[in-house]
Design a binder for these strands. Sequence first.
DNA 1: ACAGGAATTGACACTGATGTCAGTTCTGGC
DNA 2: GCCAGAACTGACATCAGTGTCAATTCCTGT
Lengths: 238, 238
Amino acid sequence: MSVLGDLKRVAGRPTARHRGAARRRTYLPAADRRAQILDVARDVFSQRGYHAANIADICSAARIGRGTLYQYFDNKRAVLLSLMEDVKARMRRVLDERPQVEEIPGAREAPPLLIAAFCRARVRALLDAVFADEQTVRLVLREARGLDGGVDRVLAAIDRMVLKAMEADLRAAQRMGVLRPLDARLVARFMLGGVEKMVLQAIADEEPIDLDALARTAVEVELFGLLVDEVRTKEARR
Amino acid sequence: MSVLGDLKRVAGRPTARHRGAARRRTYLPAADRRAQILDVARDVFSQRGYHAANIADICSAARIGRGTLYQYFDNKRAVLLSLMEDVKARMRRVLDERPQVEEIPGAREAPPLLIAAFCRARVRALLDAVFADEQTVRLVLREARGLDGGVDRVLAAIDRMVLKAMEADLRAAQRMGVLRPLDARLVARFMLGGVEKMVLQAIADEEPIDLDALARTAVEVELFGLLVDEVRTKEARR
DNA sequence: ACAGGAATTGACACTGATGTCAGTTCTGGC
DNA sequence: GCCAGAACTGACATCAGTGTCAATTCCTGT
């Protein structure tokens, strides 16, 4: 059996030397090929979904043999992981570059509308960073949960990173007496989850995504709440 | 080949008639067996995760042969689907039984604190319904996204069901002049996503879940916003 | 006690995807 | 023009999980 197998193997390998009309090979420097594969994989994943897509899909879309992909990535997970690391890096950059809460122009004398504008801008910055690569976002938000190995962990790391930043901002604003002293950790989660769901549901319902309306509504609720002013002041609060 | 296969098949089937110490069969009426399988599957899924768990895992945990499971379910997806349909039914019941917004005692003369209490109760009711079967919740929230076939659709259906109810409530309250006329659809998504994330992150970080604190914080933000009152009234809004 | 039906089983065949690798083709430097 | 090595390839072996089914065991009614 093994002998037979070996014989067939040695004999039969590259028989199809001069096949008619087979695709011609193309050669790329390693770095370029790697980048190309990532590009294509992004498309394939976001179209068919990570689970449904397999290595062969990516390779045929990239017009390369399956063996080629394995030269650059260990397996499908590694490809996804690489995509997600990019997202993470982009998020980190946005978070690192964000203006500190303490530097808000009028500090604690600022009128509410100015504060709202500041918050809107911040939410927009994050959303823009995320949507710079919309396909990966869809992927990440929709189905990259509950996967084996590192994928889950990178996802969780991104979440924690963003939450930590939001929490810090909230606490800073609380110290400045601008925001009420609610549990910053819970509130951060609430806010992030809210925005996430707005995006997600729009994607699910295949609506166009109006990032502006989204940021506006979120900030409006977060800062001012839903109650109309008359009802709100009907009786002393706190 | 096929002849040989058939021979081996006929000859070799139930050879191990009297094996030593093999597990004894147990017999159950169909309905009971089905229920038992669902019970066990719930555990297995929520422990190993849906992706990682396979049919064999469920069967060995249920102490039945793999063939048995196939008498009751077509495949792994069908098992999960059945679990999720249960969740959906439970959610529907809670939503259908919820008191209408119009019936809130003092109607639009109610003071804000009463309204807040009403909202908290509503959020708690939903959360309680969900957490009546915590294991499935974890499963659903964590990784049942982006699966093939009907799973995705049931998930989406649950989401849409809850969102629709929340949206209706919001609009009713807006008509009564209690809540500000923000985009009800967006706000509903924001609120649901916020609560979802609070739960999810707590699960991810393996914190104990304080449903009360969670509902309280969420409602506080939703209704009254984060701004402290002095800042809020610093300059006329709208 | 026996027949017939219900419940259970695990060996088998199958499938689809995976990762490997010997061999082929190109490219760039000399 | 030629060589070294980089890039590419697809046939192969393998594997894990799936679904099937003939055979077995139990249960129930007569």
